[in-house]
Nucleic acid binder design. Structure first.
Lengths: 119, 119
DNA sequence: GAGGCAGTTCAAAAATTCTTGAACTAAGAG
DNA sequence: CTCTTAGTTCAAGAATTTTTGAACTGCCTC
């Protein structure tokens, strides 16, 4: 994954509805969910849902599959992994100056360290 | 990190200039770089640079420190790790249905699987 | 092949984000 | 105190993204 792709994937996930959408699909495995069901669960109107799903699909994060009258959408785990790999490689300096992902440091934006976040 | 914070961090990185900015800072370690130098290296005018640095800072991804007349910015590794942790936890279903990050699968957006990406 | 359900596409409006340039604050040098 | 360098803030405009509603396509049932 190159920078351009990473930006597409990051941008696709950087939106409330789409992140919720993707999270929902991730929990559904490779089978995925038909658009209608997704819309119901998330309370998103059809045309808007289509728009957001298209964005995710365009970034390669979801896949579409038709089953008679329904369109099933499912998470593309490989793309997410590619994104994580990209971020991991570009987050840690070449000398692994930051802890591995598997070692959660974390907290939240405005108080990750109590420092400058909000200032 | 909660969904709101994740969106802020994702959104902060989902922009060409800011991703380049962050990548540059990551390679510079905790010392960071003064704003002027960053602007020169990336060819970004001062006021725009300030704007983007503020976005990153607001998402907790960078920290500001003054050294006499210069303002040094440095990457906040903890925030990036928090984001990676969030994505990892929300990418893999509760049953770890996708491969670990450390096991790159990857390719790029439009041809991760040769399937629906661009359609 | 008429009717209807599932979902998409399209165009216009609303909201947000990015860019620019001018005016401003902070800190050191003379 | 005045000047200069370093960088920020602000307001306006440009560009992009999100939302809405109406019209459309694909597929099944009768």
């Amino acid at each position: 994954m190159d920078q351009k792709c990473a930006i597409a994937a990051l941008g696709a996930l950087a939106q409330e509805t789409r992140l919720a959408l993707f999270r929902l699909l991730v929990t559904c495995g490779p089978t995925g969910l038909p658009a209608g069901t997704i819309g119901e669960r998330l309370g998103v109107p059809p045309s808007l849902l289509s728009f957001h799903l298209a964005q995710l699909a365009h970034a390669g994060l979801v896949t579409q599959r038709r089953s008679s009258r329904q369109l099933f959408y499912s998470a593309e785990y490989g793309a997410m992994n590619a994104l994580l790999t990209y971020l991991t490689e570009n987050c840690c300096g070449r000398d692994a100056v930051c802890a591995p992902v598997c070692n959660p440091a974390a907290c939240c934006c405005t108080d990750a360290t109590g420092k400058t976040a909000a200032a």
